[in-house]
Simulated scan of single mutants.
Amino acid sequence: MVDRRARSMSDTPPTSAAPAADGPGGEDPGDRVIRAIQQFSRSPAHVELTRALYRAGGKELTPTQVDALETLASRPEWRMHEFAEALDIDRGATSRTTDRLLRLGLAERRPDENDRRYVVVQATAAGRRISRRIQRDRYALMQEVLSGLTGDQRTDLADLLEYVTQAMEATLSRRAGSGDAP
């Protein structure tokens, strides 16, 4: 499950953006990072591996649906408003995502027996099985992909990815507080 609130980096992201120093040949390292992320996400291998990993019942799940399924499977049941909060998306988007999982037989929804004002959602046995398979296969894939890196390089990569995530969140929060658009 993805926990968007807990981060392991002890350093906080920078609060001001200083111009990046030019890299080799005068290239801005920021541009290189952006290009590398685009190449990664558009790579035919990435697309095919995602399709292979995120299949359920002959259908391809989106990364959002996989995140939702893994979150659902992380505990016995969720009230819909708690589930939306855990996913960090609005309730409408949570309902639409849940509806797709319901149609695939990966989730079920019912009124809360203790308080009928609430709706409870949970992963089905099939949903839990698929969630475990996705997690297992994704872990095996990443172990294979990262096998050429040393333990220290893997740690550095994880630290950098966590740092960039924190920096993006801090930037968006700062912009929202100042009224700037993202």
Rank of each mutant, 00 (worst) to 15 (best):
P13H: 13
M168I: 14
R35V: 10
V66S: 01
V164M: 14
R128N: 01
Y139A: 14
P111V: 14
T12D: 14
T12S: 11
V145H: 03
I34C: 06
S95C: 06
S147V: 02
P111A: 15
V120A: 08
A18P: 02
R91F: 11
Q65V: 07
A68I: 03
E144K: 14
D31E: 14
R129E: 14
G25N: 07
G23Q: 00
P111S: 11
P182I: 11
T97D: 05
Q38H: 15
R35C: 00
D88W: 06
P29L: 03
S95L: 07
R110G: 09
L104P: 00
P111E: 14
D11E: 11
V119H: 11
L101G: 00
R32T: 13
A158G: 05
R100W: 01
T150W: 02
D88N: 08
R136G: 07
R42I: 06
G26Q: 02
S43M: 02
E70C: 13
R96W: 08
G57L: 00
A73T: 01
A181F: 14
D156N: 03
L160H: 09
P63D: 07
I134Y: 01
G23Y: 06
S147C: 06
R175Y: 05
P24W: 08
A123M: 00
G57Y: 03
A107P: 02
A20R: 06
D159K: 08
G179C: 07
R35I: 04
L106Q: 02
S41G: 12
M142D: 08
S8C: 02
Q135A: 15
Y163K: 09
A140G: 11
H46S: 14
L160N: 14
A56V: 01
A52M: 11
A56P: 00
R100N: 10
R55Q: 15
A20H: 00
S74E: 12
R91H: 03
T171L: 13
A93E: 13
L149C: 04
T94P: 03
S10A: 13
G151P: 05
R133G: 01
L72A: 00
T98I: 13
A21P: 06
L102W: 14
S147N: 13
R116V: 05
R136H: 06
S173P: 03
G148D: 11
R138V: 06
R96G: 00
D112Y: 03
A167S: 10
T15I: 10
L72M: 05
A93D: 10
R154K: 12
G92H: 07
E85D: 15
R136M: 12
A45P: 01
R154S: 01
N114W: 09
P14C: 07
R154I: 01
E48T: 12
R51I: 02
R136L: 09
H46P: 02
A158E: 04
G148K: 09
T12W: 08
Q65Y: 05
T165C: 04
A170M: 05
G177N: 12
H46C: 10
R51L: 13
I37W: 02
A107L: 03
V121A: 11
